[in-house]
Amino acid sequence: MKISLSLQQDFQVPQLKLKRGELKKVIKTTLHHINIDDHCELGIACVDLNESHQLNLQYRGKDKPTNVLSFPSDIPEDILPMLDARPLGDLVICIPVVLTESQQQNKNPHDHFTHLLVHGVLHLIGYDHELGETEAEEMETLEIEILAKLGLDNPYDERV
């Protein structure tokens, strides 16, 4: 499996160093877990509160920043065989929200970012926890399994 990754890091912080190789490993592990082994491409933009807020308002009608937004590719299925790589879409991850949530939930920022990356990739390929309880449980189970493969704890365990 090959991953073509476009990474835009307009917002960076010392406590969260993102390495392209690590990001690709997370993406590959996620896709392999759900039996996608194609050459895939996706974009990740790391943004500030203002950009996340504006995008969340524009695309979801929610007047606040959010941790991750997913924009799945809308290329028709019949076109995919003609492409060199399967375009998954784009993720927008708000670094200040990731850091705030990490602190509030007593989580390591890198681990929380990794969870959100897995979560976002699942959204790009069609999983949606907002469709109902069954879909949410299915998505959470996948996230827990994938993160375990990456050596990370269950992000849904209660923190004290």
Rank of each mutant, 00 (worst) to 15 (best):
Ser6His: 03
Ser6Arg: 07
Leu7His: 00
Gln8Phe: 04
Gln9Phe: 00
Gln9Ile: 00
Phe11Asn: 01
Phe11Thr: 02
Phe11Val: 00
Phe11Glu: 05
Val13His: 06
Pro14Gln: 10
Gln15Ser: 09
Gln15Asn: 07
Leu16Asn: 08
Lys17Ser: 08
Lys17Tyr: 05
Lys17Ala: 06
Leu18Trp: 06
Lys19His: 13
Arg20Ile: 05
Gly21Ser: 13
Glu22Ser: 13
Glu22Pro: 05
Lys24Asn: 08
Lys24Cys: 14
Lys25His: 15
Val26Asn: 10
Ile27Phe: 11
Ile27His: 11
Ile27Met: 11
Ile27Ala: 12
Ile27Gln: 07
Lys28Glu: 15
Thr29Leu: 08
Thr29Arg: 12
Thr30Asn: 15
Leu31Val: 04
His32Trp: 10
His33Ser: 14
His33Phe: 11
Ile34Thr: 03
Asn35Gln: 06
Asn35Ala: 13
Asp37Tyr: 09
Asp38Leu: 10
Asp38His: 13
Asp38Gly: 06
Asp38Ile: 04
His39Val: 01
Glu41Ser: 14
Leu42Lys: 09
Gly43Gln: 07
Ile44Tyr: 03
Ile44Phe: 10
Ile44Cys: 12
Ile44Gln: 10
Cys46Tyr: 09
Asp48Arg: 02
Leu49Ser: 12
Asn50Glu: 12
Glu51Thr: 09
Glu51Val: 07
Ser52Trp: 11
His53Phe: 15
His53Trp: 13
Gln54Lys: 15
Gln54Ser: 05
Leu55Tyr: 06
Leu55Thr: 04
Asn56Leu: 08
Leu57Lys: 14
Leu57Gly: 01
Leu57Trp: 09
Gln58Ile: 01
Gln58Phe: 07
Tyr59Trp: 12
Arg60Glu: 08
Gly61Tyr: 05
Lys62Phe: 14
Asp63Pro: 02
Asp63His: 11
Lys64Val: 03
Lys64Ala: 15
Lys64Ser: 12
Pro65Ser: 11
Val68Tyr: 01
Ser70Gln: 02
Ser70Glu: 00
Ser70Lys: 01
Phe71Asn: 01
Phe71Val: 01
Phe71Pro: 02
Pro72Trp: 00
Pro72Tyr: 01
Asp74His: 06
Asp74Trp: 08
Asp74Phe: 09
Ile75Gly: 01
Ile75His: 02
Ile75Ser: 03
Glu77Ala: 15
Asp78Val: 08
Ile79Pro: 04
Ile79Gly: 08
Leu80Arg: 08
Leu80Phe: 04
Leu80Met: 10
Pro81Ile: 13
